[in-house]
């Protein structure tokens, strides 16, 4: 499917800045109508009939001929229907601005790293995620020690008190996100979090128009261990916080048991920018909702040598001339 403008027939896209559908040609808002292809063939553009290269897990892409954004019905419907999603809140221009702001202090990055031409290749992608809910019961039993020191006259007193510490609490985890994409690096997807779930909405294909997308390509069971690890880490930390007042604590028993769980499929927005430098790819990912950036700037040896060399020469010349000048006064 794709979305066509009722007024001019051009491709209508979702605008994060306007929070709605927008035709970039006639600039009308809310003029979209859903259009389906005639042939139903996945590799043919329903708008112009041009051949579109569609990878195995792609659910949304752009036609290289007519630039229309296409959404593949069979990859967003049925078993692949996302239950929820966060629409892009940051447009490409805002994202470019964030990248420039973050990396402006990277003096040794190549000159064209943040150039307009390079940044225009940035793609907005809806990344498939599994969201895990867990109902847990956390129990702790241990011995806590408190030490109090005070002085009276010429004597110092040290009081050591040992307590029997017991904690029993319910912890309900909601929507622990784990990406369901082989293509996306796990460490980057962990770092790009958190997303603000307040802007989570039910899935609507309109939100995908103007962006790329993937259907889940890793089953829930395969990636759940990441969610369970995170859940256990957080539960342990919260248990520790509950007995934080002690000087030291000896654990006798600690138990985190899952009483119930639920898994939901959804999509989250991520901007992706790949900068190629000296035959190497440098990927950057930007949270399409919060603007958080994950990635490190490439390093230009030539720029490094030129800048450090010049600074050294300037500093030496400056100090030497100052020394000479003061000696003459």
């Amino acid at each position: 499917m794709y979305f066509r403008c009722k007024n001019c027939g051009a491709n209508v896209i979702y605008s994060p800045e306007r929070h709605g559908m927008y035709c970039p040609y006639c600039e009308s808002e809310g003029s979209d109508e859903r259009a389906e292809g005639q042939t139903g063939a996945l590799t043919l553009c329903p708008n112009c009939g041009g051949e579109v290269s569609v990878e195995e897990h792609t659910s949304a892409t752009q036609c290289p001929y007519c630039d229309s954004f296409l959404i593949f019905n069979e990859r967003v419907e049925g078993e692949y229907t996302p239950r929820m999603m966060i629409p892009f809140q940051m447009g490409k221009e805002t994202c470019k601005k964030s990248l420039r702001e973050k990396f402006k202090s990277c003096r040794f990055a190549p000159t064209d790293f943040l150039s307009e031409a390079r940044l225009n290749a940035m793609q907005g992608i809806y990344v498939p995620y599994w969201f895990y809910d867990y109902k847990t019961v956390c129990q702790f039993h241990g011995e806590g020690t408190k030490i109090r020191v005070w002085r009276s006259g010429d004597r110092e007193y040290t009081e050591t008190s040992v307590y029997d510490v017991r904690r029993d609490m319910d912890l309900d985890f909601e929507k622990i996100p784990v990406d369901a994409s082989i293509q996306m690096p796990d460490d980057v997807m962990d770092l790009i979090a958190p997303f603000q779930y307040g802007q989570m909405v039910g899935f609507k294909p309109e939100f995908m128009s103007g962006f790329y997308g993937e259907k889940y390509n890793m089953p829930s069971a395969e990636v759940e261990n990441r969610a369970r690890t995170l859940m256990k880490q957080d539960a342990t930390k919260l248990l520790r916080e509950s007995y934080a007042g002690y000087s030291s604590v000896r654990t006798l028993r600690e138990d985190i048991s899952v009483q119930g769980s639920k898994t939901t499929y959804g999509l989250l927005p991520v901007w992706k920018y790949i900068y190629r430098y000296k035959e190497q790819d440098y990927p950057f990912y930007v949270n399409g909702q919060t603007g958080k950036i994950v990635g490190t700037a490439p390093f230009s040896k030539a720029k490094f040598l030129a800048y450090t060399g010049t600074l050294w020469a300037c500093l030496t010349a400056f100090l030497a001339l100052l020394q000479i000048l003061l000696g003459m006064i």
Binding site: C138, Y157, S161, V162, Y163, D170, L171, S242, Y243
Partner: peptide, 17 residues
């Protein structure tokens, strides 16, 4: 978290000078 039980019972105490 929803705390269901939270107890801190004194077991022993000693003072050194």
């Amino acid at each position: 978290p929803q705390m269901r039980n939270k107890t801190d019972g004194l077991l022993r105490k000693n003072v050194v000078t």
